[in-house]
């Protein structure tokens, strides 16, 4: 395309997104001491952590739907996200971390509200990024959805940075309340600078059915052995691979004698080699 007018800037290919000015805050001693200084990352250290950025900042990844993608819109959106991040520190956190969020509320005494809870879900891309915090207060399970780039949020603090065995902890709604109870006045737990994010391999015990969802079908790692009658597991296995009913070769292979089955597998091996 030929740009002929002065007012139009030729778009540069946006290869590497510069995160150097973004404040990566996790609950480390160093970060508590120097709050607003830039991280003096060496070139190597920067490269190493850049590979992890898609896990740390998942909302910066492009829209999964290709139809909605546009270079200029993404550029402007990310610019706005960085601008917001320069105002408040949106720390690195994962599903399973315990956060404390302070929002401004016009009708509260002190004009702000704080909520502490475990992050059970994280979704959205770009400025629409959201996360849900769950806590049990006075024996009542409460969940609050927050939009990460909402300007009424004053502070997001990570009290305990850790991961869990699952990507979403929605099963905590059907788990015993003790697994979702966290002290609202919890102190932030510090980690060693540069250490990998700890994975909590806690196995949660679920309440007896009825449940919000069919947890036996979700292959949850972070749940203790689910005690259900056989028919549930049979149905779960059936529903787990819905494409298999269209796999005609697989169904056919079960009907032929064992020797011919081996022939098919040998043939496929041969093809792979060639």
């Amino acid at each position: 395309m030929i740009n002929t007018t002065k007012n139009f800037v030729k778009l540069k290919t946006f290869k590497v997104f510069n995160f150097r000015n973004v404040y990566r805050s996790c609950s480390t001693e160093a970060s508590l001491n120097n709050t607003n200084e830039e991280e003096n990352a060496t070139q190597e250290g920067f490269k190493k952590s850049f590979a992890e950025y898609r896990h740390i900042y998942p909302e910066f990844l492009p829209d999964p739907e290709v139809k909605l993608r546009n270079v200029i819109r993404e550029k402007l959106e990310r610019k706005d996200m960085i601008a917001r991040r320069s105002q408040i520190a949106i720390p690195e956190f994962y599903v399973g971390s315990i956060l404390s969020v302070t929002t401004s509320d016009p009708h509260s005494p002190g004009k702000s509200e704080t909520f502490v809870g475990i992050c059970i879900k994280r979704e959205g891309c770009g400025l629409r990024a959201k996360f849900i915090l769950r806590n049990v207060i006075d024996h009542e399970g409460i969940e609050v959805l927050y939009e990460m780039y909402d300007p009424t949020i004053q502070k997001i603090k990570v009290l305990r940075l850790e991961k869990r065995l699952d990507d979403e902890l929605l099963y905590l709604r059907d788990a015993l309340p003790e697994y979702s109870t966290f002290d609202p006045n919890m102190e932030p737990e510090l980690l060693v600078e540069g250490a990998p994010v700890p994975v909590n391999s806690l196995k949660v015990k679920l309440k007896p059915r009825p449940w919000v969802d069919r947890w036996e079908r979700k292959n949850l790692q972070g749940v203790q052995d689910i005690d259900l009658p056989e028919r549930f597991w049979v149905k779960a296995a059936k529903v787990a691979t819905p494409w298999e009913k269209y796999d005609l070769m697989k169904i056919y292979k079960k009907t032929i004698p064992a020797e011919e089955q081996r022939k098919y597998t040998m043939k496929s091996n041969h093809n792979c080699k060639s």
Binding site: T103, F115, K130, E140, G141, I142, E143, V144, L145, Y146, E147, D150, T152, R173
Partner: peptide, 18 residues
């Protein structure tokens, strides 16, 4: 005073309809 229904952002969602 508290609903199990999905709520708007920043509005708490309860486990029981209170």
């Amino acid at each position: 005073v508290g609903l199990k229904q999905k709520q708007n952002p920043k509005v708490p969602k309860y486990d029981c309809n209170n």
